[in-house]
């Protein structure tokens, strides 16, 4: 009979909470993104519109400053701080976040695929859902910092300066800002992750992302022109987003018509957004596996 000495002792110390373990991926994702100095520079630059808007709000409420400027000349018209202002600010910030995510977002999964790291990560006590959540959180946090957080700051700043219950009378806009931003975060985040999951080369994933947002409208326009319809806009996610935002920020119908924004009903815009997110999730589910099937 063989005698085996059991001298090996497995690790029995403490571990982090199962529920929040995926945040490790988020942390590494962030450090990867900000390793790039040009990206960090671009991230900082994306707050320039915030500073301008800040100055605009202050200017709109500072009688002294306005008076000072009026002394020197006719003075500029004060900007009206209303729903259009916040819609425009959110639009600009969303574009900036889109550019940043197109640039660096696809590296989040593509680099894991290119270096065969997926089996290593999924070989740890982290599920596929947690993996996607961890990576998505990187994009979500980044876009949040650029979009809804500064917009809310501006909202409260303006509310504080306006006084007289301005915040309460515009309280609905709080929901609009959050809903519009998170819808944008979901679209950009999921499309970036899906593109990076399907293409190992992050540059190609960036190109795919661009193509998705730019070729879709072109194709939609071709459908509209050829078939004499407006349903081609369903393929233009950016159009759908704009349409929903116009509704969320209570832009009057006449203005929206002027902006050529009512080609399709609102529900179809929501369908378009839901379809984009659904397709992205489907692609992520198909692609993210701890093994790779080789067709020999």
């Amino acid at each position: 009979m063989a005698v085996y000495k059991r001298s090996y002792k497995p690790y029995e110390g403490g571990t982090t909470s199962d529920r929040w373990r995926f945040l490790v991926l988020t942390r590494y994702g962030f450090s990867g993104l900000f390793d790039s100095r040009p990206f960090t520079g671009a991230f900082v630059l994306s707050f320039v519109p915030f500073l301008i808007a800040l100055a605009g709000i202050y200017f709109a409420h500072s009688a002294t400053l306005r008076a000072l400027l009026q002394v020197r000349g006719p003075g500029p018209n004060t900007a009206q701080i209303n729903n259009y202002f916040f819609l425009a600010f959110l639009g600009i910030q969303s574009w900036l976040s889109f550019l940043l995510i197109t640039w660096q977002g696809p590296q989040l999964i593509a680099s894991d695929l290119a270096n065969n790291a997926l089996p290593l990560i999924l070989g740890r006590p982290i599920s596929r859902t947690e993996y996607v959540l961890g990576k998505f959180l990187v994009i979500a946090s980044l876009v949040s910092v650029i979009t809804w957080i500064p917009t809310l700051l501006l909202f409260f700043l303006n509310g504080g300066m306006e006084g007289n219950g301005w915040i309460w009378s515009h309280f609905w806009m709080l929901g609009s800002i959050l809903l519009a931003s998170w819808m944008w975060i979901a679209i950009v985040g999921l499309v970036a992750l899906a593109a990076s999951a399907w293409l190992k080369w992050r540059v190609a994933a960036s190109a795919l992302m661009l193509a998705f947002f730019f070729v879709g409208p072109g194709f939609g326009a071709a459908i509209n022109a050829t078939l004499g319809t407006n349903w081609g806009h369903m393929l233009d996610v950016l159009y759908a987003v704009k349409l929903i935002w116009v509704g969320l920020f209570r832009v009057p119908v006449s203005t929206a018509e002027t902006l050529n924004m009512l080609g399709i009903p609102l529900w179809s815009a929501w369908c378009s957004v839901a379809g984009t997110c659904g397709l992205s999730l489907f692609l992520l589910n198909r692609r993210l596996k701890a093994r790779e099937v080789v067709r020999g």
Binding site: V203, A204, A207, L210, A211, F214, V215, G218, A222, T226
Partner: peptide, 20 residues
Amino acid sequence: IFQFFYLRLGIFFGCLGIFT
């Protein structure tokens, strides 16, 4: 379609993908 889809988008992105 030729000017706005093919020339500005299709061939542009197609060549971007193929040649890079």
